[in-house]
Nucleic acid binder design. Structure first.
Lengths: 143, 143
DNA sequence: CAATTTAGTTATCAAATGATAATTAAGAGG
DNA sequence: CCTCTTAATTATCATTTGATAACTAAATTG
């Protein structure tokens, strides 16, 4: 087992994942929000609840900009801020009802494109794909 | 086989891939270039050769900005532009020697972090990971 | 050949973003 | 209690970026 070769495979694999993710999520955002705001909502939707610190860390943005954009999303009633009951410096950000609606629509578009992409896959292929995802999730990406 | 469930797995999987990619590539860029310039060099390194159009498409940036940043990278002697011999409107961007050096260093850092991440995986685990990557690359991400 | 489209460059301006610093509030450690 | 650190907000300013338009050059279409 050549770990070096495995690393090269990982590089080209992650590059493919990013490319396909781009294709699937292109132009899915509603017109009422900016691209960055959509990225934030998507991150919240997948990782709910999140703190502002996690957002600027995971989306590689500055704390000042995160704070600004969260305020705008709050004004638009797309997110809710909840204080941590133990550590009262922390906030947990959730999607609001309206935020959930926007993200449900976006994910519906993404899912349609995904189903289109795997429409010719056989039952066996799909099962193999599912097992492969489980394997990588468990052994490589989750910890 | 529930395709809906498979989609949900894909969403959480791609989210993990992005998170781990972030961890592995954080602060790997040399101080002489901006983050965007690093992203461009990384994309070129993985997909060489690429056209300016592919760069603005895959990195979701405007054509004007792509052109500006490529000029800067050219001034810094990190890339080379080669005209397509058939379609002379097109350019192919390659890394220069200096660009290769910068990216080799960056990937060395990333590889060290990756090896650290899989240090406790058994031989069997690594083989399973490799097969899973091959499967997803072939059946889900490559086409 | 003429008209249209495509690839890319450049200049300009407005908007988004990052860096910084000052500030508030609260947890952690001595 | 005092100091240090962490989480977050806000204001200010410089830089980066996107949008637009004008432009060159070359391919495509008809």
């Amino acid at each position: 087992m050549d770990k070096n070769e495995l690393f090269n495979k990982l590089v080209s694999f992650t590059s493919s994942v990013h490319r396909v993710t781009n294709e699937l999520t292109k132009n899915t955002k509603s017109n009422s929000i900016s691209q960055v705001q959509y990225n934030i909502l998507e991150f919240i939707a997948v990782s709910q609840p999140v703190t502002p610190s996690e957002i600027n860390d995971c989306l590689s943005m500055s704390m000042s900009n995160t704070s600004r954009e969260l305020s705008k999303l709050s004004e638009k009633k797309l997110i809710k801020k909840v204080n941590d009951s133990k550590d009262r410096r922390k906030q947990y950000i959730h999607l609001s009802k309206d935020g959930e609606v926007i993200m449900k629509e976006a994910f519906a578009t993404i899912e349609t494109r995904f189903l289109n992409r795997i429409q010719h896959a056989s039952k066996e292929d799909l099962e193999e794909i599912e097992r492969a995802i489980d394997t990588l999730q468990e052994k490589l990406f989750h910890p």
